[in-house]
């Protein structure tokens, strides 16, 4: 089920220079949401018409709230960054299929603003959890302590080495020999592609959460396609409706 709600902002905080942490009250969406799904936020300013897909970082069905952690990347997200407690924002969701949570040991791998959807995923996974997070530098690290609080082993990689391992998440995983039964991942496409190779070489199942420019968020506009293997060939699948989570072995990078 999906719906549109006129949500009110419960809280708003600044995590880094350009990353914001907003909780909004939208009871129906909160009651249906699953880890790895996303919502569509509408700028509603008359100029920027299309909704922005934002991954769900957490939800509280009892309170009817969802938590979104997003980075300002353009006019729409800039507008959202100026929201304050009590403000209204139109939201559609929950969209997409989310992660397929499996028993066994989990490895959660996130890069930059791909980290937030992994937090709710981590909260819901019951087995052994290893979390590998990659950021540009120390100042852009987000949500690290919250993963630790969930009892996960947390590894951090930064491009410049200002915190944790110097390099990217896949290099870190190689150096630490990180393995598990299932990888849950979200981040830049280049990271996910390298991770997909890492998983395949070691025979680890891997789910990747992808993104693409979209207009509707519900499968009607057919804008947000990715190439997915289909028999001997390939087909265009929709990130919003067929995804955003795909089996890494199906994706044609």
């Amino acid at each position: 089920m999906k719906t549109v709600e006129n949500a009110s902002v419960v809280s708003m905080a600044n995590l880094t220079d350009d990353v914001y942490d907003i909780t909004i009250h939208c009871p129906e969406i909160a009651s249906w949401a699953k880890a790895g799904q996303f919502v569509e936020l509408y700028p509603d300013n008359g100029a920027n018409l299309l909704a922005r897909p934002i991954s769900i970082c957490g939800m509280d069905a009892e309170k009817g709230d969802i938590r979104l952690v997003f980075r300002v990347v353009g006019k729409g997200t800039e507008l959202f960054s100026r929201l304050g407690t009590g403000d209204k924002i139109r939201v559609l969701g929950p969209c997409g299929n989310g992660f397929n949570l499996k028993d066994g040991s989990a490895v959660l791998v996130g890069g930059g603003i791909g980290v937030p959807p992994l937090l709710e995923t981590c909260r819901q996974l019951k087995g052994d959890k290893t979390v590998v997070l990659g950021f540009r530098d120390k100042s852009s690290v987000i949500l690290c302590d919250e993963f630790k609080a969930l009892g996960a082993r947390v590894y951090i990689a930064t491009d410049d080495g200002s915190l944790g391992f110097k390099g990217n998440v896949v290099e870190l995983m190689k150096s630490e020999g990180i393995t598990g039964d299932m990888i849950y991942s979200c981040g830049p496409k280049i990271m996910l592609e390298a991770l997909s190779d890492y998983a395949e070489e070691r025979g680890i199942a891997c789910q990747v959460s992808l993104e693409e420019r979209m207009a509707c968020g519900i499968g009607a506009c057919v804008g947000c396609v990715v190439k997915i293997k289909d028999g001997d060939g390939w087909t265009h699948k929709k990130v919003c409706k067929d995804g955003p989570v795909f089996d890494s072995r199906e994706v044609i990078w």
Partner: peptide, 17 residues
Amino acid sequence: QGNPAPRIAEVYGGMLN
């Protein structure tokens, strides 16, 4: 199969596809 992504761009008061 249509065209490769990106297929969508927002413009002032509208969109391109």
